[in-house]
């Protein structure tokens, strides 16, 4: 464990907690894409299959349970909670996210490290996570009024994988110098997708004005 990775995990955890608090406090999920949340449930379920098979550390197991639990909880709130579900804007959240799941799965079947069930799903989860934010970014472009909590949520979610990139550089130079193209490139693409959002988010923060993404 290194500082970059711990900072990345904490940033990721903070983003999810922030979203959960926003939904619970405001009893509203306006501006949040259910599709991105569903994609993240698929990402965590396909990545954390080894949760009950391989024990790395208490931290590792605890965080996996927290990520799985909170992401499913958020989807439950947006789909089934009697008040929150009324605030979900279905016809704005239009991204056909299953167009992301299938190509990622096929790609994982073609490009992977070992052809085993666990490895294929782990690789699939990396590919899917790199594009999982797209429905949320599309929804933000349509939203005329992005509230601060939603903006901060997306910012932290994008920042966490950026910190992981530093973690991989650090581990490459300090550990076994092992090259890992699949997580590295997936993480790079994932972070690159946020650059547009990062630019407008930081600019709105500097100019103290409302966050607005160009359509």
């Amino acid at each position: 464990m290194n500082a970059f990775r711990l900072a990345g995990d904490m940033t990721h955890l903070l983003s999810i907690i922030l979203l959960l608090l926003k939904i619970r406090a405001t009893k509203s999920c306006a501006g949040i894409s259910l599709k991105t949340q569903e994609l993240y449930v698929i990402v965590f379920m396909s990545r954390y299959l080894d949760l009950f098979r391989t024990y790395y550390s208490l931290y590792n197991s605890l965080m996996k349970i927290i990520f799985l639990g909170t992401s499913m909880c958020i989807v439950w709130y947006m789909r089934s909670h009697k008040v929150v579900r009324q605030t979900y804007n279905n016809d704005e959240d239009t991204f056909r996210h299953f167009f992301l799941v299938l190509p990622c799965f096929v790609l994982a079947l073609l490009v992977h490290r070992n052809f085993t069930f666990i490895e294929i799903l782990w690789t699939f989860s990396l590919y899917l996570e790199s594009v999982a934010i797209l429905p949320q970014l599309v929804l933000l472009q349509k939203s005329s009024n992005i509230d601060n909590l939603t903006g901060t949520y997306v910012f932290l979610l994008g920042a966490y994988r950026g910190l992981y990139l530093f973690n991989w550089v650090y581990r490459f130079f300090t550990e076994n110098h092992r090259v890992r193209w699949i997580p590295w490139l997936s993480g790079l693409i994932q972070t690159a997708i946020y650059t547009d959002f990062f630019y407008y988010y930081i600019r709105s923060w500097k100019n103290r004005e409302k966050l607005k993404l160009p359509a």
């Binding site: 990775r5 995990d9 391989t54 790395y56 590792n60 990520f67 782990w122 973690n167 092992r178 997580p183």
Partner: peptide, 10 residues
């Protein structure tokens, strides 16, 4: 299974 170091990441 040879343990894959990156798998201890989240």
């Amino acid at each position: 299974i040879q343990s894959d170091p990156i798998k201890d990441e989240l």
